[in-house]
Amino acid sequence: MEQQLDFLVDKVVAELQKKLAELGEKTSGPKAEAAVEGKAAPQQGIAPVTATKPQETHSAPAEPKGTALIPNPKWKEGLDELLASTPARIGVWRTGVRPLTKTMLQLRRDHAAAVDAVYGEVSQEVLDQFSLFTVETQYDNTENYLKRPDMGRVLTEESVRLIQERCQKRPQVQIVVSDGLSASAVDANLKDVLPSLMDSLKSYGLSCGTPFFVKGGRVASMDHIGEILEPEVLVLLIGERPGLVTAHSMSAYMCYRPRKGMVESERTVISNIHRQGTSPIEAGAHIGTILAKMLEQKASGVKLVL
């Protein structure tokens, strides 16, 4: 009986997840989710949702790889078939037991982009375009930010004062942007995500407080901001840990009445927002829909019915 039930549950979940997977939701698996904060994060964490159909299923590395690298494959068409089935770096050939120069440099290039994203700064121009003023967490510097996630969850006193001075209190929707682990994610996606989110909020008749930018923010900085401004709902647009396929991926974390002591499962997230993943424009619209549902159901995270 129990086994049968398990079987049924599996079937339903498998169907749902296959649909998600077909949409190319690379980062929504429990392992990958855990990877954001470290391998050992509990497997039942944040409640992820899919936004929209991505533009491409596989974001293959930009440089051509292809059959040319294996000089005499046993089956040339077969090799094309293998290459088309995965974004993994296969069919790369070798010199002795080492990779070819081209393949090696490709890997180094992609890693360089990822490292630059972590250590980079968000362009002031992008922030100015949306009149976002800047506040800081207690992160101090990038090295410390990486070592002390706890300090990226709390704003400096000066920042708290600035927010109190410049922001509307108790807004219906509060939008916050942060560099997180990828400054280039903000540079690459904000100009598409933010306008479409604003449009979406307008179409639902929702009012928005004063948006701002948090330098050195972690996801849970939402809680501190929630204490200061007491919004009904808050959305944090934050750069994800960069991968080699893309270093510009952004996540949107959303929470109903954020406050100190929130747990992961009380937040809703759309991850993998970038050009080859969840399209930024469609993500913006989808965030608006989710925020409207949160206000309607007075809930977020696993309790939210989408």
């Binding site: 990877a35 993994a88 770096r89 070798r94 080492r98 890997l107 840990r241 080699l244």
Partner: peptide, 21 residues
């Protein structure tokens, strides 16, 4: 992992070439 780049877990490990070496 193919060229050390795990396209699912988004981290880098050792490659097929590395182990052969």
């Amino acid at each position: 992992v193919a060229m050390a780049d795990d396209v699912m877990l988004n981290y880098q490990s050792t490659s097929f070439h590395d182990i052969a070496a």
